[in-house]
Design a protein around this nucleic acid. Structure first.
Lengths: 196, 196, 196, 196
DNA sequence: CGATAAGCGAGACGGTACGTCTCGTCTTTGA
DNA sequence: TCAAAGACGAGACGTACCGTCTCGCTTATCG
């Protein structure tokens, strides 16, 4: 077994994971405090880090946010198995709502979305992030199809976009809360006999 | 009959509606051309207007966009009466999708949404705009309730947020098109027997 | 012989001298208070007057200042006759120094000078003003020549520019005061046997 | 020997002297061409530099001008030693007149003076500049005292302010030229037996 | 007596420049 | 080679004034 792919064994100082983490932490701090818009400059300053270091690790502000945020989000969405699709979807939505209600997470999501409307890189980050989330929900739904709790011809894409659309819409416009009750009601409305 | 409240009737040169319209037109032109982000400077230049004049009429970029856009949107959504809720909602969604698919309108909506995440004024503009649109859909749905085509206890807020959430989500993320077919399918999924 | 030049005798409302005076007064108030730079807008506002009215009476800011100021200066410089050139010049300088030391007058002079460096109209106003002042001093000096207290070939221009140069220099740079003592000493230095 | 005061030795990119010089050069170019008033924006553009960079090096327009100009002025006024005060002062004045007659230098001086009347920073710059010039002339005069060509009780401040006042007055008002002849005549009038 | 013509306060308008802010890149020094 | 610091070109931001141009009104003079 030749170690061909890693040609040059490595020289120079190693990247400092602590630095990386400091940036992620600082980004969440800034978002949670919410005193001012998070700029690359304020982020670097808050992390006690050079701007270049931020750019070395991530290509754009949105990428930082996406990572800071996915670190938080990961443990919150284990896609539990409650035995029924309705239960699973309700649990999924409830977890998602809870997460989005955390000030830092909600603000981060909103900033990523905002950035994505102007910056192509941010758009890509957003696409990747949302694709991952959609896949998670799709998995839950497909389990329901396997169990026979959902018809095999159900349009999962439509259901998924309705679910995430609802969350994002309330998050971005802020006209109504993402309450526990809303999660329950929404789950019911998403699943058959709808659109039968 | 006291006429006290209106003390000084008005002095000074009148605001020039043509100027105002020139700015709105220029903003749509810039959005549709989409060559670069619309800045207040490029907008003023394109309209052949001083920057101050733009700020005299609108407090923020988002406010200009919202107005430019609602001017367009108004005639597109006449909330036609087709006899059935399903028909009405389908028509409503189809019109909305068509409008959002126009390059200028879609881009304007996305920029307003982006601005609203950082600027409080933009957020207010967005709230006003979305409230108007929600009311339009609510009117359509209430007509359905009156006709007995929708149960009187239907949670209209949920339906409405699902509908607009879907549109905005696809518009902002761009992972899937707002096709005619999607409008039809979505309409079916929004109305009972869903969530019964 | 028709009286062609004055064709139409005049119609319309008469110019209001009170308005004119209000502007001059306001300009001095602004200068004396010295809180901020005197702009045409602040001047009009302080005088309770439309901007156009100021421009109707004077072509430029400097013209207003020059007039506001010459109104003040007039009575201060009667070019008294003390019997000797030295006495006359000393009195002239002392009066000039005293006038320039008044906060409003000094500031007005400085602003006119500043304006004159960029605006041609202001330059013209300044030229007219300074020419008048130079003429006043020249009259005093010529009286000295007539009396035989100054040689007939004395270079009055040089003396005059030295005198006014001294005042303006100290006024504009502000490194040394225009004291009573300085007036006396300067007067002595300006007159023969200097440069004999 | 404590090395305490200079803690952090310096990090970050060094200031680029070439950039600095480009700005100074551009400022003189703009002044000499004299097509329009020198603005910070035109200056930055002419130097091929961001506006911020100009502000990084100098706090105000006047500061740039003062520096651009003192760079020029330095070599022009070597305070030559001709053996007599009269000769030295004549040379000093002649050099000063010659310098002020250069279009760029004269314009720069006038603009600094104008700026100094409104901007405190510019005033400070002007004070520093004029103080340096006064010191130069004072040195010449003191040499005269040492040589016994000037009485030890001569009021040098008065002589100095007369000299510079004359120059500035003619420069700012522009009613008479700063000719070679004027330099000679002025020098004679500045020195004893004047004010004896 | 109108009709006509200013004068006037107010303020909109097209401009220009201001000084600040952020972006993403580049360069220096020390670790 | 990495990292902190920060200079740099670029350009948008929102504000301040400029001088001109209407507005709706008031006040004078003339036919």
């Amino acid at each position: 077994m030749a170690a061909s792919p890693a040609r040059r064994p490595h020289t120079g100082r190693n990247r400092n994971q602590a630095t990386r983490q400091a940036i992620l932490d600082a980004s969440l701090d800034l978002l949670i405090s919410g005193e001012a818009a998070m700029t690359m400059e304020s982020l670097a300053a808050a992390a006690g880090v050079g701007k270049q270091t931020v750019y070395r690790w991530w290509p754009s502000k949105a990428a930082v946010l996406a990572e800071a945020l996915s670190g938080r989000a990961r443990d919150l969405v284990p896609a539990a198995d409650t035995g029924t699709v309705l239960g699973d979807v309700t649990a999924f939505l409830a977890a998602m709502f809870r997460s989005a209600n955390q000030p830092g997470v909600g603000r981060a999501l909103r900033m990523i979305m905002a950035e994505a409307q102007t910056s192509p890189q941010a758009a890509q980050v957003l696409r990747a992030y949302t694709a991952g989330r959609r896949q998670a929900l799709r998995t839950v739904l497909e389990r329901g199809v396997d169990r026979g709790q959902l018809p095999p011809d159900a349009d999962l894409d439509l259901i998924i976009d309705q679910a995430f659309g609802f969350v994002w819409y309330r998050l971005l416009v802020g006209h109504a809360p993402l309450s526990r009750r809303a999660a329950t009601d929404l789950a019911k409305r998403l699943l058959p006999p709808c659109g039968a």
